[in-house]
């Protein structure tokens, strides 16, 4: 039995989604309207797969996905009304285990869930176009990024960096968020590790 939690802030859509998948006998479905409620029960981790809407009202499905992946071993699939190609990068960055459009058929959704549980990622064919277009060269840091990283190595605090650049503390925090995203880092320590590992300062 696959335990699935669908999170969507629109009750009607949620109801529709549930009905869509109920026909599958190997899937047991729960629903949740708010991200907060999901996070609160993460410690118990009663689900194998989380099906998350990207727009959760004030909350953001992508950061919820990140939290879930950090705290549990469950699979996370984005279930979006947007164009799913928008979120292909998240698959590449291993932040989610699949992206499914809400326009997708019952079969596609159920197959995606089943694949995810078995450690597979089911993707549409245009994913290859995405890969093709975004064929990444090796990551290279910009001058500003190198400067920030070297300051980090020197042990400067955010406040000191902000005053060096004559910008506000909030702005420097924003810069770091962006750099974390670029490097796929989650903390200052991991930034240093990644930089060292990939020899990004050389």
């Amino acid at each position: 039995m696959i335990k699935v939690l669908i999170v969507d802030d629109h009750p009607i859509v949620l109801e529709g989604s549930k009905r869509l998948m109920e026909s599958a006998e190997d899937i047991q479905i729960d629903t949740e309207l708010q991200a907060v409620d999901v996070i609160n029960q993460l410690s118990e981790n009663r689900y194998d797969v989380y099906l998350l809407d990207v727009n959760l009202g004030e909350d953001d499905g992508i950061s919820l996905a990140q939290t879930i992946k950090e705290q549990t071993g469950a699979r996370v699939i984005l279930y979006t009304g947007d164009d799913p190609t928008n979120y292909y990068s998240l698959i590449v960055e291993k932040k989610v285990d699949g992206v499914v459009s809400k326009m997708a058929t019952r079969f596609q959704v159920i197959q995606t869930i089943r694949a995810a549980v078995q450690g597979l990622i089911m993707i549409p064919m245009d994913f290859l176009d995405y890969i093709d277009f975004n064929r990444r060269e090796e990551i290279q840091l910009t001058a500003k990024e190198k400067m920030l990283v070297s300051w980090l190595q020197e042990g400067l605090t955010n406040k000191e960096m902000a005053s060096k650049l004559h910008i506000s503390l909030r702005t420097i925090e924003r810069y770091w968020t962006q750099l974390f995203q670029v490097l796929g880092a989650t903390s200052r320590e991991s930034v240093l590790e990644i930089v060292k590992e990939k020899r990004l300062l050389e």
Binding site: I62, N86, L90, D129, F133
Partner: peptide, 16 residues
């Protein structure tokens, strides 16, 4: 995508 994935990703996607 802009707010969620950042400018570079949004621009790439737009370009695609």
């Amino acid at each position: 995508v802009l707010n969620k994935l950042g400018l570079t990703a949004a621009l790439s996607q737009l370009a695609q």
